[in-house]
């Protein structure tokens, strides 16, 4: 499939750092194009941070990283007003959120208060400090990571806030071959630092705008809605996908079609994205086990539901 140049370039660029994870990289790009935010959930050390880092590096945009800890305050994220003696006035010092790509590392380690300040900024693309509204930079994308294996001293994100993320991705361990390549790399330099930007912020905005032009056939739309409806009727789920979820799947599908060089959506796009886009937006019914396994469980249930929906012919 012929992938248009900008997408090809950015994916190639990231792939030089993250070995053997073409699908994850593609999805990260889709997320960027769909104006979404990305939640990476995996055990430590598989490249979550590196992925975010390399994505930011590949774009000619500003990049900030916030390490979330339990004593982090909202003002540490959005910024603070400081009295400037020279001008005899309060002056807003923007926080790290005023960047194009924001990496929120270990987002579940901080308090709900701080979490929500980030999530609010994510959904509204602006922050308010001392009655003053400050717009965030465009394009704006938050890549949050969290570690599912450890729960001590964490504050799990509530479903309503998980909903703000377009996708939830797992990276997973690389294959033996890929891991060997990683080991053979020179150690001195962080691989992401060597990347050169291939797209400007303006390019990204232009790509985001082109989503509108992607055609979604009525039958594909019906197919998407059928999936969403099925999650609401499934007995395995106590809460199905919201309308925002359906909208997200719609946007993501168009973005995926664009990334793959098509001007129209296929049922394939919807089907492939459904587990990634929907599984963190559903709540398992009580019978479906504890939270610990919920990520994989939810993904599996959504996959099963998708398999029951006939594809339009």
């Amino acid at each position: 499939m012929n992938v248009p140049k900008p997408f090809h370039a950015i994916q190639d660029n990231i792939a030089r750092v993250i070995k053997g994870k073409a699908q994850v990289i593609e999805m990260a790009v889709v997320c960027l194009v769909a104006r979404g935010h990305l939640l990476l959930e995996d055990v430590p050390g598989v490249g979550k941070t590196t992925l975010a880092h390399s994505l930011a590096r590949s774009l000619d945009c500003s990049f900030k990283r916030i390490q979330f800890t339990s004593d982090l305050l909202p003002s540490d994220i959005v910024g603070v007003s400081i009295f400037n003696r020279q001008h005899q006035a309060f002056e807003f010092v923007p926080g790290p959120i005023f960047a194009n790509i924001v990496l929120a590392d270990e987002i579940n380690r901080t308090t709900p208060k701080t979490q929500s300040s980030l999530l609010e900024a994510m959904s509204e693309a602006q922050v308010s400090v001392d009655n003053q509204t400050h717009s965030l930079k465009q394009p704006f994308m938050v890549i949050a990571t969290q570690n599912p294996a450890e729960y001590h001293g964490t504050f799990p994100l509530p479903e309503s806030q998980l909903d703000r993320f377009l996708m939830r991705l797992r990276i997973g361990y690389p294959s033996l071959e890929e891991e060997r390549k990683v080991l053979n790399r020179p150690y001195a330099l962080h691989p992401a630092d060597s990347l050169a930007p291939v797209l400007t912020a303006q390019d990204v905005l232009e790509l985001q705008r082109r989503i509108e032009e992607v055609h979604m056939d009525e039958s594909v739309c019906e197919y998407l809605l059928a999936i969403v409806h099925a999650t609401r009727q499934s007995e395995l789920l106590s809460l199905g996908v919201s309308t925002r979820g359906a909208l997200a799947l719609n946007n993501a599908s168009k973005a995926l079609a664009l990334v793959r060089g098509r001007e129209y959506c296929l049922p394939d796009d919807v089907k492939e994205l459904a587990p990634i886009v929907l599984s963190h937006r559903v709540m398992l019914s009580r019978a479906q086990g504890m939270r610990a396994q919920s990520f994989e469980q939810a993904e599996r249930i959504v996959l099963d539901i998708v398999e029951t929906i006939p594809v339009p012919v």
Binding site: L266, D268, K271, E307, V311
Partner: peptide, 27 residues
């Protein structure tokens, strides 16, 4: 072409390739 695609599905099904209603073109 839709008709042709359908005949292709039939041929493939006769050949023993499992085609569920939820099978997408790429699959």
């Amino acid at each position: 072409i839709v008709q042709h695609y359908r005949s292709m599905l039939r041929i493939a099904a006769r050949r023993g390739i499992r085609i569920a209603p939820s099978t997408t073109p790429t699959e």
